[in-house]
């Protein structure tokens, strides 16, 4: 249970908002839940709701609205590739397709070992460092970008990063 495992962190989160606005804590609490469980299931909705004074259905509404909370299972790590306009102009679509091919999956599919699910993500604010992907997992969200504009991230480099993560 989050309440026991993260008692201090939850107190810290709640202390940032006025006491009568506990519901403001729903987003940070959901980030905590997403990290801990990898998805937000119905029992988790109730758990988070109890912590910030919301009904489970209200929490479900929040989960459905924002892209970084997930109500369905996936691989241990979500590999989220940006293919929006500025990235696409710098080859991100081909990058995404080739990475999928090398991993042996299609978009929104999970590798056979359960490690990675490849997903589209909307612009992540790294347009000058395309191609770019982010990893969402139990540690949060982390960018993997091209080192420089004239050194675009290659599929091989991306696979190396993924293999390193897998070995951890």
């Amino acid at each position: 249970m989050l309440a026991e495992k993260y008692a201090d962190e939850i107190q810290k989160i709640l202390s940032r908002y006025p006491p009568e606005w506990k519901r403001s804590a729903v987003m940070p609490l959901l980030h905590l839940a997403q990290r801990e469980y990898g998805q937000v299931t119905p029992p988790v909705l109730a758990e988070v709701g109890a912590l910030c004074g919301l009904e489970p259905t209200q929490v479900a509404g929040v989960v459905g609205f924002y892209s970084l909370y997930h109500d369905h299972p996936a691989g241990r790590r979500r590999v989220q590739i940006c293919t929006d306009l500025p990235c696409a102009l710098r080859g991100a679509e081909r990058f995404g397709q080739e990475l999928c091919q090398k991993l042996g999956v299609g978009w929104d599919e999970t590798t056979a070992d359960g490690e990675f699910t490849v997903e589209h993500v909307m612009c992540v604010g790294a347009c000058d460092k395309a191609p770019v992907f982010q990893i969402q997992d139990e540690t949060g969200i982390h960018f993997h970008e091209s080192p420089a504009p004239d050194q675009p991230l290659t599929v091989e480099q991306a696979l190396e990063s993924l293999n390193r993560l897998k070995a951890q």
Binding site: H31, F65, L68, M122
Partner: peptide, 8 residues
């Protein structure tokens, strides 16, 4: 800080 969750 208040962290968003992916909504333009």
């Amino acid at each position: 800080n208040h962290l968003g969750a992916g909504a333009y």
